[in-house]
Design a protein around this nucleic acid. Structure first.
Lengths: 207, 207
DNA sequence: GACCATACATAACAAACGTTTGGTATGTAC
DNA sequence: GTACATACCAAACGTTTGTTATGTATGGTC
């Protein structure tokens, strides 16, 4: 049954390994430095390997970004506290979701550097731009739910528009990501969380 | 006296025209699409013109970005209301400075698209990264002054750290820029200003 | 009018790029 | 053992890139 090919799972697993090489090149040299030869060298392989698993460079990049997005969505998140306790609700969950975006650790810095770098090519490519827009819209929708929960719990003023609060919160963390990438020494993890918490308490007290 | 060369002013003026061509290429095709031939074609000239005014591509790009920054700093700003009335102070000036960042008009969209696109190459190039970090640090310092003024005027709570409020405000508008670029129809000018105003009233009421 | 920068255009250059081709090794299928 | 697909490597292809070299027209200087 799993016969004539060396198993479909292996194929996909190899494509993921290739994507990891793409991530490494992107996080260190940027999209400008993303060449098939650079990825191949990163993997200790030849460009023939890349063309074997991907029809062209565009497909290579798209798959790497999709996989990075998927990995971000399924990693152990700060949304789910350790210990298997139930996820926090309302404001706490909003906070956790926003913390998940910030480059608080080394790996988060690398990931965010890729996403920020991807904005240039994405804005010049309708297909990638659509994927990005959809990604952020989805994230905004999730935040909106958390805001609505927090309002129901009385943690946030009930009068405000949940969608507006969610959009504002997303803008806040996105901008904080950019600041932290360019001035890491001025925006260490503690300061990022402190700024976010100040923002959230402002929301709770705000009009 | 202004003899042996066709006037220094002309030379610099020509370099600025070239930079405008660079801006046009960057805003439509991104940094990925920035080639000497593309810029030359945009100007209706040859690559020889570019090499006559700039030693290499790096210098061409650096000058275009510096000039774009200078132009942003000296254009008629929303900080200075029409009619020659004195600039607003405190919270109003903070608001004006933040509004200046947002892509509210067509030209602002093009400029912001360039800046967002520049982040990829800047993060991969220490010299450009330093220039960017300095730019944002300077902007943050200006915002900090406005926050302190607003606190002195009693428009913002006196207890908060002005630098923290300024960093948060800058993060907010930067992230809003990104959102607006990727989803212009969801973030028209009115919504951007509404979100910013909601953020500012939250600050005024917040802890 | 001779002289000489400047201001470009034209054309060529080597390097690097994405992609294609041709080959070999490996492992199952029968 | 033969057949055949997969999984690569190595090399080459044509194109595009930034850069350099060469030529020419122009306009001020003496």
């Amino acid at each position: 049954m799993s016969a004539m090919t060396p198993a479909r799972g292996d194929h996909d697993a190899r494509r993921l390994e290739v994507s990891e090489g793409v991530w490494r090149v992107l996080s260190t040299r940027g999209f400008e430095g993303l060449t098939l030869r650079a990825v191949a060298a990163e993997l200790g392989a030849s460009t023939g390997l890349l063309t074997h698993y991907f029809p062209n460079k565009r497909a290579l990049l798209s798959h790497a970004l999709e996989e990075l997005d998927r990995r971000s969505g399924s990693r152990p998140r700060r949304t789910d506290p350790p210990g298997g306790t139930p996820p926090p609700a309302g404001l706490a969950q909003l906070r956790a979701a926003l913390l998940d975006v910030l480059p608080l650790g080394e790996a988060d810095v690398a990931d965010n550097r890729i996403w920020v770098g991807s904005w240039d090519v994405a804005l010049a490519d309708p297909e990638l731009a659509g994927a990005h827009a959809a990604r952020y819209r989805r994230a905004r929708a999730a935040l909106t739910d958390h805001v609505a929960d927090a309002q129901r719990l009385g943690e946030l003023p009930a009068g405000a528009d949940p969608a507006a609060l969610a959009a504002g919160a997303q803008a806040f963390v996105l901008g904080l990501v950019v600041q932290a990438l360019f001035a890491p020494e001025e925006f260490p993890a503690e300061r990022q969380t402190a700024l976010l918490d100040a923002y959230l308490t402002g929301l709770a007290a705000g009009a």
